[in-house]
Design a protein around this nucleic acid. Structure first.
Lengths: 221, 221, 221, 221
DNA sequence: AATGAATGAGCCTTCATTCAT
DNA sequence: GATGAATGAAGGCTCATTCAT
């Protein structure tokens, strides 16, 4: 049992605090001071453990992304022999779970900010993450849309399905220390208990949409 | 006819530049210097005409929002006697047009940033804008889902429809002076020419989804 | 008559203070704070007028170098028909005057620091200044050493003559605000009144040295 | 024979690294981190072995100065019965050798930096070293200039002779890890192979100069 | 109406130093 | 004997804002 100094533990505390602060305020608005205050360490600790804010940002992202991927795999633990519809539901559910996670949910915020206003620091890691997920989604949609679906068909349906999941927000009290005025009262705010209902809705809505698209595809030929 | 400077014209130039810069970088990352440089005026001009950055931000939003509302009304010019399906398509199309507008499209970016990372300066104006649109959407969905639809049914379908429109991004060259590294290569980037196809897809996908939900509703009773 | 704000005057005040502080402490040890305090302006003024410390450094050097070149031309105002010996003495005297100048003498310090521990910011400007002076010295020495002198002969004599001038230091009270402990009691400290005597010594010492070298050159052939 | 770490050996390694880094970058620009990295020890080692940077600096100087004094004595090993001219050449040669030493040459750099921009930490040790050398030089010059030479005569000639030796720089590859941009292309850069030629030149140049001064002295009376 | 000059708060970062191990 | 962790003071720089013109 370490009393005071343990590098790894401190690193983790900073990483946790950083996820919280970055996820709430975004990269530029977050400050070393706030992150370190929340982690209970000196302001210099960021540079000691991560050499720079940019580096901390990257580390935060990677740390959280890995954890999220591990906790909520997109295949939902389903084997490859599950039906496409089940696999779709599993993926929808996984994304929702990621949004709802009390701590890791912040990475969803981070992601939305990066999409709206990229820092440029995650370029590669972001792209590879994106590709990974798209590949899964598209292969899933391929099964649902049939062999005649064009790439465009696939991508449009991808947009339709994924955008619904991403639009979901988490309710909950603002983090302590917040002025409370930051989060506007957006609609579509849910909590973890709603996940099932949400997943049901999005899945059935989407399956109907996909079926309609499939009909159009088949009518084309 | 003024010979020298016209206050109103300068104000407009700043407003235009501000929309561009705020829309590209977000509130915190945008600076007086950059906005004024792009507007071709002195850095103090922001405070002269708008007293503060926050105020300029609000003014920018209101200015652009008004223009957008006028150019692309959500009812698409359709009378109240149009079919619900047509009205839905009109709304989808209007949102897409707003995204695609070469200049005013920036307000869509602004909105996404505000949602991901609210400045807190648009609280009221944002909320009222939201309500306005939600009222229209929900009344529209009410017609499509039938009288038995609960508030929750409506809101879930609202989420499904609107999120698809909002997920669309505009392609296009980065604004001059940009290093070109900011915008990551996200999927779902389209240009104005794609609007029709996009509107078609989103509308038919959504109508199918809505129909499925309606069936469930009716099965419930 | 300007009461308060005059950009050019402030710029000059900063430049003067910077010469003093840089010349006393060197680039790295000098701080914005100290320079601005001495100039009677806010710490941000450096960045306002010069954008960066490095830039201020360069500007300081160029400003002072130009002034020095103008005040104490290396030809000492002598026409090209003056005897080589007179021209040599004039050059020696000019260098000494530069060292002794109550204000601009600091640029000599700056130069010595740059030679001992280059910042790398003056690379080009330093090299061109050096070449300028070397050209003059070498052409002068060519006249004194005769046509048979090799390039090596010239450069060795250049070293002998110029190094003597450069070794001279200026006495004088440490600048106000200094702790007084910085300047060690080096030898070869003189003041302006000694310039004549110093120039006499260095010139006659050097002329004798040069004559000896010339004899060796002629004995070689 | 120690198996693990030997305090004295570590101390030495730090001292060596410190000489290299201080000699290249000067006191203020050198950091614990760089010195210790080069010595292959932890950053805290400086404070452990030397309690402070200032102390390390002093120790470095003393360590190197002692070694240099031992390796290249200023009398060049000549007995007191050698001719004054030979003794002068020996001293010139010794100084040049000190500059050219592949490792200890750094102390010459250190000295130049201290002269241009004193840290104030070597005050006493510097002064005593200076006096030592001056005594030797002056007594030598006394022999060469004759009994009628005044103190001023002696000091002026001292300046003339010593300054030539000090102006010499060493060529050579920049230390590994350097960006290569630090050392500007100054003239008067030589390597060890040039020492003989340099010593010849400086000695004969100086002897001629001294002879001329002696003539003036004798003409005075 | 508009501007150039100037300011001060706050940020990220560096670095010598301390402390516990 | 030596080290890794942690700190705090200080520095350069950015930027919204103010003031006088």
């Amino acid at each position: 049992m370490r009393l005071r100094k343990d590098g790894e533990a401190t690193r983790r505390r900073i990483l946790d605090a950083a996820l919280e602060v970055f996820g709430t305020k975004g990269y530029h608005d977050a400050t070393h001071a706030e992150i370190c205050a929340q982690a209970g360490v000196n302001t210099s600790a960021v540079n000691y453990h991560f050499t720079s804010k940019e580096n901390l940002y990257r580390a935060t992202w990677e740390h959280a992304a890995k954890a999220v991927e591990c906790l909520y795999p997109l295949d939902g633990g389903l084997g490859p022999d599950a039906s496409p519809a089940d696999r779709l539901r599993a993926q929808v559910r996984a994304i929702l779970d990621r949004v709802m996670d009390p701590r890791l949910g912040q990475i969803h915020n981070l992601r939305m900010m990066e999409m709206a206003n990229p820092t440029g620091f995650l370029h590669d890691v972001f792209a590879s993450w994106l590709n990974e997920h798209r590949r899964l989604t598209l292969s899933n949609l391929r099964d649902l849309l049939g062999a005649q679906a064009t790439q465009e068909d696939l991508e449009l349906c991808e947009l339709s399905v994924i955008s619904q999941c991403r639009a979901v927000h988490k309710t909950g009290p603002p983090p302590k220390g917040s002025q409370g005025t930051r989060r506007p009262s957006l609609p579509w705010r849910f909590n973890a208990a709603d996940s099932d209902r949400l997943a049901d809705h999005i899945t059935s809505f989407s399956l109907a949409g996909i079926a309609a698209v499939r009909q159009q595809i088949e009518a084309r030929s």
